[in-house]
Nucleic acid binder design. Structure first.
Lengths: 205, 205
DNA sequence: CAACAAACCCCGATAAATGAGGAAATTACT
DNA sequence: AGTAATTTCCTCATTTATCGGGGTTTGTTG
């Protein structure tokens, strides 16, 4: 199985390579520190499985997954991320990846995931399964904010004032204020600082 | 050399262990996912070298380093962090750690660091050296904010209003305003959002 | 000692955001 | 076609923060 590893931390890359080298059937044929680099490598090398981080410099893991799934739909993908926020996990899973393992998980989970994926199955680590099941009880949680609200939040995070946002989106300042109000209510944050922290925690920045 | 590894990501821990297992002279005798857990382990096991991450759940790496250096000054410490912000690096180095390697660095740097430390030397990875040298040209950079300003900034990040901060610190709201003003000026951030981003980037949150 | 930085305090004018209410127009979904 | 959700716009009162000045006291250091 030809594997391409993507992570911005060289030492993690080295470590995983070392772990996987114990398995005869796994062949790490490439490593990349960024999504862009990974895409370059994919042009020249045949790859069966892509194991990628979510947080990457430049293009993020989600975009990489989308691109790869479009360009080479038969390349399997396992996401190896530190993020366990419900909506983020769901967003990635929606892209049809074959596996999701947390960096908190043991390497055994990673190897299991690779096994499963090789056999054409899908593997979610224990912790991820728990998150998914949990979220069944709170089906709304992942759609906390509407697209528009997310858009506004991102602009807030870009240090735009309400006025700036209104101009940018061709809507009234009042509307922006309402969105803002709703965002605060939905995220249960009372202050701008809390909101920005929320945005960080939910990878909106 | 008896090594204790500390990192909140199991898979990185596994990877590094796998990498180090190739070296006969290195014996990973323990792993911890948090500073607290590491301190527990240190009570029962003899350790020569502690390799720790900076970002940890609960107590952070810096506090761990300080504690270990106080309790067991002869335990060598290598910090393995993703952070390359000048002032943060300096803050950690001030604690007298024996090595600093970035997660961006290759595992070769880590092994080199261990070699050096074993011989009683200090090892800073190439990238860290570059940062240190660079900072010589900007000696002020690391002391951007005064202690008081940092204190205020942390409270701002805790979602306290000026009024709250004033009450908490037994100073006038005017004073808080002035500090705030100065913080904005010094950090060259115009908005609260920018300030919070700064705080994140500088690990003040 | 003089100079400087740090921490402290104050003011007035202005800008920006919040809170609490209501309401209409669009989409999306069944 | 009808309902729900979303997006849009509004007012008024109030709070909070910003900008640009002013100043004192204390402690450190060349």
């Amino acid at each position: 199985m030809k594997v391409l590893l993507v992570d911005d931390h060289a030492i993690l890359l080295d470590g995983i390579k070392s772990l996987l080298s114990q398995e005869a059937s796994i062949d790490v044929i490439g490593e990349a520190n960024s999504a862009e680099q990974a895409l370059e490598l994919l042009k020249t090398k045949a790859v069966d499985l892509l194991i990628t981080d979510f947080n990457l410099p430049g293009m993020d893991g989600l975009s990489l997954v989308r691109l790869v799934k479009k360009i080479s739909p038969n390349i399997k993908i396992i996401v190896l991320s530190m993020h366990d926020e419900t909506h983020l996990v769901k967003e990635i899973l929606r892209e049809g990846v074959e596996g999701y393992v947390l960096k908190n998980d043991s390497h055994i989970e990673l190897k299991l995931a690779i096994e499963y994926v090789r056999e054409g199955k899908i593997y979610l680590s224990n912790n991820i399964n728990r998150i998914i099941i949990n979220s069944l009880n709170f089906p709304d949680e992942d759609r906390l904010l509407t697209d528009r609200e997310r858009e506004i939040l991102k602009l807030i995070a870009k240090e735009y004032s309400n006025k700036d946002i209104a101009e940018q989106l061709f809507i009234s300042e009042r509307t922006v204020e309402t969105h803002r109000k709703n965002i605060f209510r939905k995220t249960k944050t009372g202050t701008l600082v809390g909101l920005i922290k929320f945005a960080y925690a939910n990878n909106l920045i």
